[in-house]
Computed example of a mutant assay.
Amino acid sequence: MPKTDSPPGHPFPDDLAQAQRDLHRAQADHTANSRTLPWSAEPHPGWPAEVHSVSGAVLSPAREASPGYTPGQRAEDDRLRALVLDLSERVATHPYWATVERGETVAARQALKALGAGAP
C-alpha cells in the first residue's frame, strides 16, 4: 500500500487518504444541497407561532408551509446520503486501522480527519 503525504507518525495509505478527502467533499456537497431543500421532505401545511398569553413572547416560531421535495430533489438527497455512507464505511473499515496500535487509534483518526479537511 503506497503511503501519502501524512502527518508524522501516521503514514496513511493513498487510498485511505483519498477516501477521507472524498468523504469531506461528499459531506460538504450534502450540506450545501440540504440548504436548498424545503424544510420538510413531505408536503406539510406548517403551523402558526405559539405566543405566551400574558407576556406576548414567542414561545415557538411559526413555520411556513412546505411543498415537500420534488422527485429530483429526493433523488439527489438520496444519492448524496448514500455516497457519504459508502465513503464513511470505506474509511472506518479500511485495513489500515488493524495496523494501528491500540492506544494510537484516536490520534490517527483525528490526523486523518485533519488531512481530509483541506479538501476542496
Rank of each mutant, 00 (worst) to 15 (best):
P2K: 12
P2S: 05
K3S: 10
D5R: 03
D5E: 13
S6P: 06
P8D: 07
G9W: 11
P11Y: 11
F12L: 01
F12G: 01
D15E: 13
Q20G: 06
Q20H: 09
Q20A: 06
R21K: 15
L23D: 05
L23Y: 09
R25Y: 04
A26H: 02
A28L: 12
A28Q: 14
D29R: 13
T31M: 03
A32E: 15
N33R: 14
R35K: 13
R35C: 00
R35Y: 02
P38E: 07
S40D: 10
A41L: 00
E42Q: 10
P45M: 11
E50P: 00
V51D: 09
V51P: 12
S53M: 09
S53D: 08
V54H: 01
G56R: 04
A57M: 02
V58H: 02
L59Q: 05
S60C: 03
S60H: 12
S60I: 01
A62E: 14
R63E: 14
R63D: 01
R63V: 07
A65L: 03
A65Q: 14
S66E: 02
G68S: 01
Y69A: 00
P71K: 04
G72I: 01
G72C: 01
G72S: 08
E76R: 14
D78W: 01
D78T: 12
R79C: 08
L80K: 05
R81S: 09
A82K: 10
V84I: 07
L85F: 08
L87W: 03
L87Y: 02
S88L: 02
E89H: 07
E89Y: 02
V91M: 04
A92C: 06
A92K: 06
A92Q: 14
T93N: 15
T93M: 04
P95Q: 06
W97Q: 09
W97D: 10
W97N: 10
A98Y: 12
T99F: 12
V100C: 04
R102P: 02
R102Q: 12
G103Q: 11
G103D: 14
V106Y: 14
A107D: 14
A107S: 09
A108K: 04
R109Y: 15
A111S: 15
L112V: 10
L115R: 15
A119R: 12
